[in-house]
Structure formats: structure tokens, C-alpha cells
Design a protein around this nucleic acid. Structure first.
Lengths: 133, 133
DNA sequence: GCAATATGATACTACTTAGGTATCATATTG
DNA sequence: CAATATGATACCTAAGTAGTATCATATTGC
């Protein structure tokens, strides 16, 4: 079980690199800097652009740059792009076993853990990650 | 992303049922009580027995019973049986990108979240789940 | 204009894991 | 000895993760 998928991990590290270098970086440059698989990274960059986190420009000196200040890009928001549900508990016992879902003790515990994890994921920003280096 | 797999979820609910009824219950009885797929539940019960959480007895009036007091069966220990790694971060950047893994800011954050989740999972026991009903 | 360089869109493959089934062997009880 | 249980094991299928490949389109500089 992994909290972050590889796409999310790549994405965060790529975003950090872009944030540090204040200029536009192409997929090619990023691939070399970060030694990530090129085609895969291209896809990730495209998704980040589509999600409105990156600006993209085509053509000879094109590439990607941040579209939002680093303070406002959270780990939770990046995860959301690449991992549909950042929820922990998809209760499998609709009505069969737990006649009253709202009273299921296991569910309560998991939801409580989930919400505290999500809270923390929302509090981690690109900017805070950069400071901690 | 789900914190608990279905096997773990079934296992916990099954263990709760066994713990409540102080007698030996067969896979057949449990299947009926809990409306879980029979063959699947059988496998889960076998794994729980192999892990030393359940006693099993064969033959006509055989079945399963708790082998450990409910206070000492934690959610973490059940997860461990069915979900090899309850770790959150399998860092993918061995030495390439993070020359010094120990200083990776993202890794630090994830490990911190992970350890607090594990701590909570260890604190949830069958007994505590039963009390909260 | 045109070649070179970029991204956009999209489709496809390989691998792993989760979820579930089925069967034969073996032990226990009445 | 037949009925009932678990033990061990070998499958199968669907979904998600990780990664590749290609064609279309936009931009820049000569």
C-alpha cells in the first residue's frame, strides 16, 4: 500500500524543480534533470497543465511554468489529479451487515484517521516543501 | 486508494462476530450470519488461523474461535496479515534524484503521516471496537 | 515559408494486486 | 463409516499502476 503513486511523486518533484528555477522548462530539460522516463513525464506534465497548475507554451522555446504560487499548491491537490479517491474507506457492507452504517465502529475509526491524514495533506504545500530543504 | 482491503474488512467483522459469540463458529455459520462469499471467507479464516489469531478445529462440530483475547488483537495486526506493507512510502528515487534520501522533504512528511497512522491502527483493538457499539 | 522544437490528444501494452472460486486431502464426530 | 469441517493449493478475472508511442498542432528563428 502506497499513499502516493509514482505519478504523484514524480509530479511533486517536477513541480519543485520548476518552482525553484523561475523560468520555463521543457519536458526534455526536466527529463534530463530528474532522470525520469521521458514519455511518462510528458504525460504527467500534460495532466498538470490540464489541471491548471502549470502554464504550458508550445514551440521552440516552449515548456512549462507554475501557474499558481507555490504556497497554494498542496500535496492533496496534486494527489487529487493522479489518484481519483484519496478516501480511505469505501464501506463494503451497504445494508447487509451494517444495518445502520452510521453506527459502524470500524467505519468511524477509519473515517477519523482519513480526515486527519487529508488535513495534513492539505497543509503540505510546494512552498513548505521547499523551505524544509 | 483504500486503507483497508476487503479481506481486512471482512476479517475484522468476522473476528468481531466470533468474539461476541463465545463459542466455536464454523465457516458455514459465519457465511450465513455475515452474507460474505463462502469460499472467500474460508480462505480468510484459514489465514487468520495460520497467523495464530484463531483456533481451528476440524470435524463435525468444528470451527473457529479466538486464540488471543480481544484486547490484544489490533487493527494493525490484522492488516499485516492481509496487506504485506502497511507502509506509505516506498521511495522511488533511490540515489538518482535524491542524493541524500534522509534529507528528502517529501519523504519526511510522508513518513511522519505514516507513523501517526500506524500508531492509531495499533491502538484500535477488537475490544475497543466492540465497546463502541 | 519552412524546418526544428514543443506541447496536445489519445491509444495501447505489460505487470501487479485485489477479489473471488474451486478442489482434493485430511481430521473429527456420532 | 458417512457426514461435516478445516488445510493446502491452484486457479481465474477485473482494475489500477507504470510506462510507451504516435500523430496532430502550435511557435520560433532563419
Amino acid at each position: 500500500m502506497n499513499l502516493l503513486t509514482r505519478k504523484t511523486d514524480y509530479a511533486v518533484k517536477t513541480l519543485l524543480t520548476i518552482a525553484r528555477s523561475k523560468r520555463t522548462l521543457s519536458a526534455q530539460e526536466l527529463t534530463e534533470k530528474l532522470s525520469m522516463p521521458r514519455a511518462f513525464l510528458r504525460g504527467i506534465l500534460q495532466e498538470l497543465a490540464a489541471a491548471g497548475i502549470l502554464n504550458s507554451s508550445r514551440g521552440v522555446s516552449g515548456g512549462f511554468s507554475l501557474c499558481i504560487p507555490a504556497e497554494r499548491i498542496t500535496l492533496a491537490s496534486v494527489m487529487k489529479i493522479f489518484q481519483d479517491k484519496v478516501s480511505f474507506n469505501e464501506c463494503i457492507f451497504k445494508k447487509k451487515i451494517c444495518p445502520d452504517r452510521s453506527s459502524c465502529p470500524l467505519r468511524k475509526e477509519i473515517l477519523s484517521i482519513e480526515s486527519s491524514v487529508i488535513k495534513r495533506l492539505k497543509s503540505i504545500t510546494l512552498a513548505s516543501l521547499m523551505k524544509n530543504i
